[in-house]
């Protein structure tokens, strides 16, 4: 049976994908948050989206990154805070992880790599997580 790529609008010989659900949530990293030495700061929001077997397409944007939205299951952005009075770089990780069949956890995580307290950058930063789910066929 022949099959030319993409010249068919629809072919019943091939499995396809189905849109399932969509949703969004926001998570705000507080400006000037203080994180103890070696500690991890997390803030999160849980979102009910998708059915079991729903796979996610994830878009993440930030209030400090402009109008673009990143296609990424996790986003790591560099910021500069202070540690012992001196400029100290660190990374905010905005990540998505499923916690149940129909719920995802969208969280922002900052690990303090320094031995003493890290004061994060001034100004809160809000991350928007938009999640579409789709269903791949049974196998």
């Amino acid at each position: 049976m022949s099959s030319k790529p993409e010249k068919f609008i629809y072919s019943s010989d091939f499995a396809t994908l189905k849109n399932d659900d969509d949703g969004f949530t926001t998570v705000t990293v507080v400006g000037s948050a203080v994180i103890a030495g070696g500690a991890v700061y997390t803030v999160s929001s849980d979102l009910t989206v998708g059915s079991q077997l729903g796979e996610g397409r994830i878009r993440i944007s930030s209030s400090k990154i402009g109008s673009s939205t990143f296609y990424a299951g996790y986003l790591g952005v560099n910021r500069t805070g202070t540690e012992s009075g001196s400029p100290a770089p660190y990374t905010i990780y905005a990540i998505v992880s499923r916690i149940s069949a129909t719920q995802v956890r969208c969280l922002c995580m900052i690990g303090n790599p320094y031995a003493t307290a890290l004061t994060c950058a001034a100004g809160s930063e809000t991350f928007v997580f938009k999640i579409n789910t789709f269903i791949s066929p049974a196998t």
Binding site: Q52, L53, G73, Y74, I95, V96, S97, R98, A101
Partner: peptide, 13 residues
């Protein structure tokens, strides 16, 4: 049973 389905480059936090 794929009770909780993780995406690529993702998993339990």
């Amino acid at each position: 049973s794929y009770s909780t389905l993780y995406g690529l480059n993702s998993g339990p936090v």
